[in-house]
Design a protein around this nucleic acid. Structure first.
Lengths: 233, 233
DNA sequence: GACTCTTGAATTTGTCGTACTTAATGGGTT
DNA sequence: AACCCATTAAGTACGACAAATTCAAGAGTC
């Protein structure tokens, strides 16, 4: 899942990026390219390329005679998958999971509604397959198998919505679901009600019942919100 | 609003980025760094930095002995503000506006709901101020003034939601609203019903009526969808 | 004496060119 | 078919100079 930092420039990013997003360098902090190059034992060229990437993520700003200044969090490109990964690996992982779960609660119901209208026969078949897979792994501590089908299910929904912006959130949803399974809430079998809801969503999409697909998905995401003690919208 | 491409590296990006997102180089196309450097009359270092940025946006992939290959659209970081800007300036502007408007229709109602719960007194005041500004500019072809307050209104909502992911969509919403005013649909005064809805949203948020704020905002975004002939969710 | 404006030096990024290294590809040989 | 090697384009390093902006010192004025 993690990108193994191709090349020296990638290695530098995999160290500097998490450090910055973790708040190790507070907003306004000034870094110097030469010093960083020395610290990481790379050439200035490599460090400059790394800084350029951080700049394109709006994590830092590079100005002459000043150096590389860290920008405030409010300006970061928080939708950049790499930034999301770094933040999920760092100190504000809980905060990040909350933000993303709220995002899910807004996106997925609408995506399900659109999926009910646009899904192909193949996608419908895949959807029911995933739902059945979830049922099959819902008892007896088969969390990994369950997660696999759960992630696949939500990916299909997002893709079937026909909206590219929704489709690109597949990785985010996967990360949130994986995070929940591996670190946080789930120690036992998943909630049977949630499993049922997924099956019903698959049915609704297959039947082309947009309103029902949206409503059921909303119930799923509200469940996710409650798990994190977020007031249900 | 537009970033003026700071430095040579920025200038290269402002040319190459739009070209790639416009599909001028179809997925799988291979570019060579040296050739590009020659074409843009910059050093290889500068071109390499530009390529690194394009790579961080998942627009291209750089591999040894092969070159810089253009990735398929499905892998692009479509939430990157720069990518959004490039695509809005290019050929698939209509498609992009549709995607973003659908995204709005998912996000903004939930954001309004959260804003009703989290908005500070200052934010409530600003919100009513924006709504009143919209009313004041709703007659007599004052489209620019209307747009200004409209954008500000939606920014306040997104910020007041307290969710950083929502807040970062302020620029996107601004771009969509501006696009609608300047290029596409609006030649006359804005729909009076829409103006009224904004005023009512401001009231609902002030009153802390989350459900009402959500519902009213949903009506606003559904109106935006209908303007683009998208089936209302 | 306090203040402002100008000037210039110091500093850090920006750009360039070159040389060398590394890895993947494709073809030729065994 | 398996292996080896030459080719190729990116990856890395280093050194030099250009450009811009900050900061302070100094001149001039009120």
């Amino acid at each position: 899942m993690t990108t193994p930092g191709r090349g020296l420039h990638g290695h530098v990013l995999e160290t500097l990026g998490p450090a910055i997003t973790a708040g190790e360098y507070p907003p306004g902090s000034v870094l110097r390219t030469d010093e960083l190059a020395q610290r990481f034992d790379v050439s200035r060229s490599v460090m400059r390329e790394a800084v350029r990437v951080l700049e394109s993520m709006h994590l830092v700003e590079s100005r002459r005679r000043v150096g590389v200044t860290v920008r405030p969090r409010s300006e970061w490109n928080v939708y950049d998958p790499q930034v999301i990964r770094w933040r999920l690996a760092g100190a504000d992982r809980p905060q990040q999971l909350r933000s993303l779960t709220v995002l899910r609660s807004a996106i997925e119901p609408v995506a399900a509604r659109l999926a009910a209208k646009h899904a192909t026969a193949d996608q419908c078949a895949e959807l029911t397959e995933c739902a059945l897979g979830m049922v099959a792994h819902s008892k007896g501590h088969q969390l990994e198998g369950y997660l696999l089908h759960d992630v696949a299910f939500h990916r299909v929904i997002l893709n079937a919505s026909g909206n590219e912006m929704f489709a690109r959130l597949g990785d985010v949803v996967a990360e949130v679901l994986a995070g929940r399974t591996h670190h946080d809430v789930m120690f036992e079998d998943p909630d049977p009600a949630a499993v049922t809801l997924h099956v019903q969503v698959a049915e609704a999409v297959r039947a082309g019942d947009a309103a029902r697909a949206e409503h059921l998905t909303k119930e799923i995401t509200e469940g996710a919100l409650q798990e994190l003690d977020i007031l249900a919208p």
